[in-house]
Design a protein around this nucleic acid. Structure first.
Length: 423
RNA sequence: GGAGGGAUGGCCGAGUGGCUUAAGGCAACUGACUUGAAAUCAGUCGUGGCCGCAAGGUCACCGGGGGUUCGAAUCCCUCUCCCUCCGCCA
């Protein structure tokens, strides 16, 4: 949610942001019209309400029955007018909310212009592309051959795009999750275990609703939604709270499964475990003071990079362009790891500064230590790496000529003595 | 799932139709007294909208939404959450 004052005072800036994001700027004009009408009515109706307040008080003091009756009649008339205005204001505010709810955040000035993901900018590549003295296999061959990845049974019990990790495959993923959570704990993030189902208000707060309802799983009977990312419950933790400045920054990490209904075209990118309706992820999330969010974004990027470095994976850092940054984001870094089997870069992490966008929707403020007016906090989110893709990278990078997988050293503490996954 | 009881400011807690612009207490902050602190005294002490350069004015908010009324924290309907008991249950 943008500040209505900002839209009112700098509509051209908002229009430009929308067109930079390849969106229609027309809603800005609708908002301006609704806002002007709303304020005009408010000034009128408030005069009436003030009159009603004093009038009602006079009635309570009026001893003469006839005079009392006259006054009540007059006030009844005022009441009708108030009700009519109130109704109109309510309608305007509802439309204002629904239009404003689909306006994305303003891209940061440093976010490069670009029409879509093809214009994202590679900032740097860390590590060398690994060389193999054999033809590296793709994870969808490696996994089943080792008996740690079972596509057929996933399809049998649930359907297309679902798979089962078996034995050391499941354990390897659990090791990755534990490794990331422990690393983020050391980096200063407080671990959270949250519900995986949330109510609509929580999704709205994080910016997922109303715009992305199509991508979410919803239980109609209980009116609960499955989380598409831990970012949603983590944002919700402090909904409708006023924090003290000394509490900030609040840094959280959480593991959750993520559920996404996105319509995926059959035949394209369907193979393997790269993209599914259910995947696991460890997330980082920060609530901080506005003046700190710039620096926190860089810190969080470093923390995500450390995850890759620890695993010994070659990766590159991209800066997303205006046409590709997320709905609530002002600036976003993506981290992609190299998958030598697939021969492609896999997006495993996305780190964004949402500034006060989510905080407005979630109504999360803080009280400055000097006692000044409350202000909205800034929020940042970043994947500590998405699981199936990281798993792909580990399998494909650590494969050996005989088809076995060497376990990365940082994962050994959770592998129960297993150092190599063999057939 | 069934029966009953609740939800008031940071916290506790009064308040069942109009001198309530929500009593009182605690906590916090400011000042006075004090060498300093404690105690005491005085004051301040919620969030947001609208108008205004400002000072200030005004409106709304007593879990959410709706209704009755000239007037609602208070009455009615409804939803959510919490507590007690019963049932079921990993």
């Amino acid at each position: 949610m943008l500040d209505i004052n900002l839209i009112r005072e700098q509509p051209d800036r908002v229009r430009k942001a929308l067109s930079d994001r390849q969106m229609d700027p027309a809603p800005v004009d609708r908002i301006l019209a609704l806002d002007a009408r709303r304020r005009a009515i408010l000034t009128e109706v408030e005069v009436l309400k003030a009159r009603r307040n004093t009038g009602s008080k006079e009635i309570s003091l009026e001893k003469d029955a006839a005079a009392r009756k006259t006054k009540i009649e007059a006030m009844r008339e005022v009441g009708f007018n108030i009700a009519a205005f109130d109704k109109e204001v309510a309608e305007i505010e509802e439309e204002l909310r629904s239009v404003a709810a689909i306006i994305p955040n303003l891209p940061d000035a440093r976010t490069p212009y670009g029409k879509d993901d093809s214009e994202n900018v590679v900032l740097r590549t860390v590590g060398q592309l690994p060389k193999f003295d054999f033809e590296p296999k793709i994870h969808w061959d490696l996994g089943p051959e080792l008996g740690i990845l079972d596509f057929e049974r996933g399809v049998k019990i649930t359907g297309s795009r679902f798979y089962v990790l078996t034995g050391l495959g499941a354990r390897l993923q659990r090791a990755l999750i534990a490794y990331m959570l422990d690393l983020h704990n050391r980096q200063g993030y407080l671990e959270q275990y949250t519900p995986f189902m949330v109510k609509a208000a929580t999704l709205y707060a994080a910016g997922q609703l109303p715009k992305f309802a199509d991508n979410l799983y919803h239980d109609a009977e209980e009116d609960l939604w499955l989380v598409p990312t831990a970012e949603v419950p983590l944002t919700g933790l402090h909904m409708d709270e006023i924090l003290e400045e000394k509490q900030l920054p609040l840094q959280y990490t959480a593991y959750t499964p993520c559920f996404r209904r996105e319509k995926m075209s059959a035949g394209r990118e369907v193979r393997g475990i790269k993209r599914g309706h259910q995947f696991d992820k460890v997330e980082m999330y920060v609530f901080c003071k506005p003046e700190e969010s710039d620096a926190r974004l860089e810190k969080m990027r470093e923390h995500a990079e450390a995850t890759c470095t620890g695993l010994g994976l070659t990766y590159r850092v991209k800066q997303l362009c205006t046409g590709d940054i997320g709905f609530g984001a002002t600036m976003t870094y993506d981290i992609e790891v190299w998958a030598p089997g697939l021969q492609e870069w896999l997006e495993v992490s996305s780190i964004s500064n949402d500034t006060d966008f989510q905080a407005r929707r979630a109504n999360i403020k803080y009280r400055p230590a000097d006692g000044g007016r409350t202000r909205f906090v800034h929020t940042l989110n970043g994947s500590g790496l998405g699981m199936p893709r990281t798993l792909i990278a580990v399998l494909e990078n650590y494969q050996q000529a005989d088809g076995s997988i060497k376990i990365p050293e940082v994962l050994l503490p959770w592998m129960g003595g297993v150092e190599i996954i063999r057939q």
